[in-house]
Nucleic acid binder design. Structure first.
Lengths: 173, 173
DNA sequence: GTCTATACCCGGATAGAC
DNA sequence: GTCTATCCGGGTATAGAC
């Protein structure tokens, strides 16, 4: 829940700041996502950002919320567990730095758009027939596959399509 | 392979530095693992460390190699896929920051003790009967479960034992 | 709403004296 | 082998003028 002390980002300028942050994050990774770099990109000075955004955490929360809602759209369009796996992997590979911001490290749930996280999770639960244990196992498998691929932890020749197929067919209800 | 330009850490003082780094990492996480903090703990100044260790990366590589060898010992003692899952989760929960250093982000393979990574991986491959696709799926599942648990990504009431059981029984050969 | 100036942290790493 | 002095970089955030 968002309190009056945590107003969501609404002003046009604030949205521009979030957009600049998104571009920097996607292009350069977390190191590019600094208040100074965002200000540079907008042609202003870093302290000016604080007239529009409370702190960096608010900005990250906005990026994460946007990410969950975008991912949810892709996940909802998938008609099978296999298609959902492809959508999941596709989202992560298309937006690796955003994916990490969304799924690695602590999640600032109080600052997110309400329901965004749940909307992204729902298609996974539905795809396994509603069993929460199975849904968690599938989520863990997909997340593990994606982060290990992003971090180059599999051997060079590894057939990741085959590993995905093996995992999802085993975990399907 | 390690070249003469990448000599492994051998001197007694260097091992003390690595030990101090290990203690700081485990106690305070990656933020505690700085050259200044390590020097403080040893009662010397940070620049003195560089007489014993080439740079921070060499130190991290030593920590990672130690971690793989310790994990390998635990994994080798497991007699079934279920026991291996317990050993894996147990290691990660006992050493969360070391686990992340070992398994998150790029792995400096050229600086590791040769064979350490492979020794930790071998029991997983053996436990699934040698099928590499299945081994990768199990690895991804286990890694996903562990990092999601460490990052508190599962709902408060989630039965993680059940999710582990569901995943491993599905993925078993 | 933007600016300058500044405060406060932190980090890795090197040179050269002893 | 340790020291001091120093260099470089980075970051978030605030105060107060315009």
């Amino acid at each position: 829940m968002q309190s009056a002390a945590n107003p969501p980002i609404r002003s046009a300028r604030a949205r521009e700041i979030v957009a600049a942050g998104r571009e920097l994050l996607e292009a350069e990774g977390p190191a590019g996502l600094s208040m100074r770099r965002i200000a540079d990109r907008l042609g202003i000075r870093a302290p000016s950002l604080y007239k529009h955004v409370r702190d960096k955490g608010e900005l990250e929360a906005a990026l994460i919320s946007d990410g969950f809602l975008e991912a949810a759209e892709r996940f909802e369009a998938a008609g099978s567990l296999t298609a959902l796996g492809e959508a999941y992997r596709g989202f992560a590979l298309a937006h690796p730095h955003l994916y990490r911001l969304m799924f690695q490290g602590p999640l600032p749930r109080e600052r997110l758009v309400p329901g965004a996280e749940q909307r992204a999770a729902a298609p996974v639960i539905a795809a396994v027939g509603g069993d929460p244990d199975r849904a968690r196992a599938v989520f863990a498998f997909a997340h593990g596959m994606v982060v290990l691929e992003l971090d180059d932890r599999f051997p060079p020749g590894a057939d990741l399509d085959a590993a995905w197929a093996r995992g999802l067919s085993s975990l399907a209800p």
